[in-house]
């Protein structure tokens, strides 16, 4: 591989993290009408790192769950820089189960460097909260589309990305570990993040090639009215198709979609 490709993956990491990039709330404001935000996990607290609620997509009610990084420094602090606590995932799950009950489609907007790493998060079961989201999304009896709009950081991102369709923005990234973390663990040198980014195959085109996502959303018009318009039409069309399917079949397809990811050659002994 040529040297210029080495910088490419990391360039996308930088773009995915860039301030000024549309956040979850921007998508909700531009695609969804009459959005009503619903707060709290009914157990412990309301985690503002996740914004969830109900609104209309082309006149039809949908549930939207978005990991929100915040658009300015004040908002970023309020939203904990898009790093959810367990109660955030439990709120997300509550809203998705509510969508299932009322047969509303679910849209997840994923943008996080990872689930919050802290004492309280561990005490309240970060691992268990993510595991429960994954299990329940897998079996959710209503259609779902997850869009990775920026950073897709590890389990904290996957928790909201076990959907019928997973899309990624052209410059979004999706990875099991940050390139910095990978470089410091493997090579004891976080400055090798560029190299790690390349090796991790974390870009949208990598994810598409590996079958992890269905589509890449182009970014030429990112943030413009036409961008949101196209995405709205695309989502509407997708949900028309998904809602026409028998719900058990839908769940079966979703299960198989993830079942078939990364199946190694199990041929036998070597």
């Amino acid at each position: 591989m040529a040297k210029n490709t080495v910088s490419k993956a990391y360039d996308r990491v930088k773009l995915a993290r860039q301030n000024g990039r549309p956040t979850g709330v921007d998508y909700i404001e531009n695609i969804i009408t009459d959005f009503i935000e619903l707060h709290g996990d009914r157990n412990y607290a309301d985690d503002e790192a996740i914004v969830g609620g109900i609104g209309y997509l082309d006149g039809k009610p949908v549930t939207v769950v978005a990991i929100e990084k915040g658009r300015n420094s004040k908002e970023r602090v309020a939203h904990n820089f898009g790093a959810p606590h367990p109660e955030g995932y439990r709120k997300a799950l509550r809203l998705m189960k509510q969508a299932e009950k009322f047969r509303r489609p679910v849209i997840c907007l994923v943008d996080t460097s990872g689930a919050y790493c802290g004492i309280g998060a561990e005490e309240r079961g970060q691992g268990q909260a993510i595991a429960q989201c994954i299990v329940e999304m897998m079996a959710l009896k209503t259609p779902s589309v997850s869009i990775l709009i920026g950073e897709g950081g590890s389990g904290g991102a996957l928790a909201l990305a076990v959907a019928d369709r997973v899309w990624m923005l052209e410059n979004a990234v999706y990875s099991a570990i940050s390139p910095e973390g990978c470089a410091s663990i493997l090579w004891k040198d976080s400055s090798k993040a560029e190299e790690a980014a390349e090796s991790l195959k974390l870009t949208a085109s990598d994810a598409l090639a590996l079958g992890v996502i269905e589509e890449i959303i182009p970014e030429q018009e990112l943030g413009k009215e036409s961008f949101y318009e196209k995405l709205r039409v695309k989502l509407s069309r997708e949900f028309r198709e998904l809602t026409s399917m028998d719900v058990d079949q839908l769940v079966q397809h979703r299960f198989e979609r993830f079942r078939n990811l990364g199946v190694p050659d199990m041929g036998g002994k070597k």
Binding site: I134, L158, A176, L200, R259, L261
Partner: peptide
């Protein structure tokens, strides 16, 4: 120690794959 980073995003996907299998077994 968690997902194997040398297998990148596909190792992350094993969390979903195994969870799906647990769910079916449980159901």
């Amino acid at each position: 120690g968690g997902a194997r980073m040398q297998e990148g995003i596909l190792s992350l996907m094993q969390m979903a794959k195994t969870s799906g299998a647990v769910k079916r077994h449980s159901d």
